[in-house]
Design a protein around this nucleic acid. Structure first.
Lengths: 202, 202
DNA sequence: GTCTATAATTTGATAGAC
DNA sequence: GTCTATCAAATTATAGAC
């Protein structure tokens, strides 16, 4: 079936991504990950010395996928409404694939906020944020959007992009009992962008 | 130091609250809870037969504090914008006082959505939601607000009320490095209500 | 590289003295 | 009611054959 190590490695990472996503770090079982990858525990440990290392791999890859583009999107020269739309789409796309990121980051952040802050600085998020902040202020001065604290606006966008992902299991059952929530989420990026733009446009 | 069982019980519940909130059910260790409570594991098991039972106790108490009043607010007969404002204020008021509840609930809800759903039904959240949903639809038909899927609107309000609380440590450092975030949060309820109403009003 | 079998460790839970 | 000591089960991790 499988011939190469690279192939197995990918299977492991995909399996780990899936299990970590639904169970979290503590709740995930190495056996379950091995099963999902179609191999056994021993081989899993052969590829990744321990569970912690495996998680680090998946997590850092995920963070990079999330924050790298966020910084790029915020730092580019597109018009404000376009930028908001791009940001929403990106957040939803990545977080649907790595839904465990927010909860894990938030858990860690409550214990050690500086660790995540360091990662954000490394990815260039701070400068990107400053640039977007200036852009928002400029848009207000130009009479393009109503007055609003840029920090407030950014926090709102983050809330509307991230919270639905982490609340998906319960909100899905509460609000969308008869629909496939993953489908709802896919369409939600654009609707959230609309919601934000509706709120700030003159 | 301790004389009575009631006192010990409270210490246990407070400790469990704290540990479960930061580690989740799977991540929490009975030893750690015992340490935090200033007792030993055996005594912990004397008060609560097993970890599951202890968790149930803490979880249900937290849910009740959060959802009971929410259901009342949603079920009352106030006008839509007033209701939105009330909801935002209530969420912020309660969650500023009990900031551990959301992470705690979301952690577990991701793993076991049905447990949370059962509690929501018990607290009467479903009926309250249905009533507010009808109210939103009526407001759209009356031309009072722009067309929007009620589920989408409710999910947005929840996001804007809950996410800032759980992201406070990291968002605070990112967005408000030189300000006291607790002060920002206190004023935020009204601003969030404004943001939502601005987005949906005609 | 991949497997089976097993060691080592963690941790929830209990027995029994005081 | 509270403790020390210990068991039993679950789970991570490794040894060693192929």
């Amino acid at each position: 079936m499988r011939e190469k190590s690279e192939e197995t490695q990918k299977q492991i990472l995909d399996a780990a991504k899936k299990i970590f996503a639904s169970k979290g770090l503590a709740g995930a079982r190495m056996q379950e990950i091995a099963d999902e990858a179609g191999i056994n525990k021993a081989l899993l440990h052969y590829y990744y010395r321990n569970k912690e290392k495996l998680f680090e791999q998946v997590f850092e890859e995920a963070i990079h996928k999330l924050l790298g583009p966020v910084a790029s999107f915020m730092a580019d020269d597109s018009e404000l409404f376009t930028k908001i739309r791009n940001l929403c789409h990106h957040y939803y796309a990545v977080l649907i694939e790595y839904p465990f990121i927010p909860i894990f980051v938030l858990n860690e952040a409550s214990v050690n906020p500086d660790r995540f802050l360091r990662l954000m600085k490394f990815e260039g998020v701070m400068e990107a944020k400053d640039k977007t902040t200036k852009q928002i202020e400029q848009s207000i001065n130009d009479g393009k959007i109503r007055p609003i604290d840029p920090r407030e606006l950014l926090w709102n966008i983050l809330s509307l992009c991230i919270f639905p992902i982490i609340s998906r299991p319960v909100a899905g059952k509460l609000l969308y009992p008869d629909v496939e929530v993953s489908e709802v989420l896919k369409e939600r990026a654009d609707k959230v962008a609309d919601f934000v733009i509706q709120s700030i446009k003159i």
